[in-house]
């Protein structure tokens, strides 16, 4: 179990790293301009994380955090335009970089096992992409027929 104080500490540190990436990266947004947007995201993150720990339902924090993010920004949410004007200063790509840096470092210890995936994972990936596309196309076709659209 992680204490709330430690969770906040980690969220803030990763938030700061993200702000630096957001600054030196493609969009070059000054951290001072982006600070409020990050603060909003961190509040959503902390509430969502806390809910996943406090509620008796066993769901991962990402479910709560994503729902909070959606609810905070629907057109019917009071103040959503203000929230979006600030979160818009954080680029989505900038939020992905530190996470994958942690992931890379952590995979480092299993690099041998990772390399063993080799060419076989490429074959699986191609079948994955094909399956996603064809599966959706078949169901869409059937549904459009059933609902009389085509």
């Amino acid at each position: 179990m992680i204490k709330p104080m430690h969770a906040i500490q980690i969220f803030v540190i990763v938030g700061l790293i993200t702000l630096v990436g957001n600054w030196v990266g493609m969009d070059q947004i000054n951290p001072i301009d982006a600070a409020m947007g990050m603060l909003i995201l961190l509040v959503l993150v902390f509430i969502g994380w806390w809910l996943s720990q406090a509620l008796p339902i066993n769901l991962p924090p990402i479910v709560f955090v994503s729902i909070l993010g959606i609810l905070a920004t629907t057109p019917w949410t009071p103040g959503s335009a203000w929230i979006l004007s600030h979160t818009g200063n954080i680029s989505f790509l900038a939020t992905t970089t530190p996470v994958l840096a942690f992931a890379g470092i952590s995979i480092g210890k299993d690099l041998d096992k990772f390399m063993e995936l080799g060419w076989r994972i490429i074959v699986v990936a191609l079948v994955v992409f094909t399956g996603t596309f064809l599966g959706s196309a078949v169901i869409a076709q059937v549904m459009l027929r059933l609902t009389g659209q085509i």
Partner: peptide, 22 residues
């Protein structure tokens, strides 16, 4: 690094949520 992935990814997920809401 491993437990930190799970926590740091939440910022990404929050941002994703705010792009879906509108």
């Amino acid at each position: 690094a491993s437990p930190l992935i799970v926590l740091s990814v939440l910022i990404l997920v929050a941002k994703l949520g705010t792009t879906i809401g509108p």
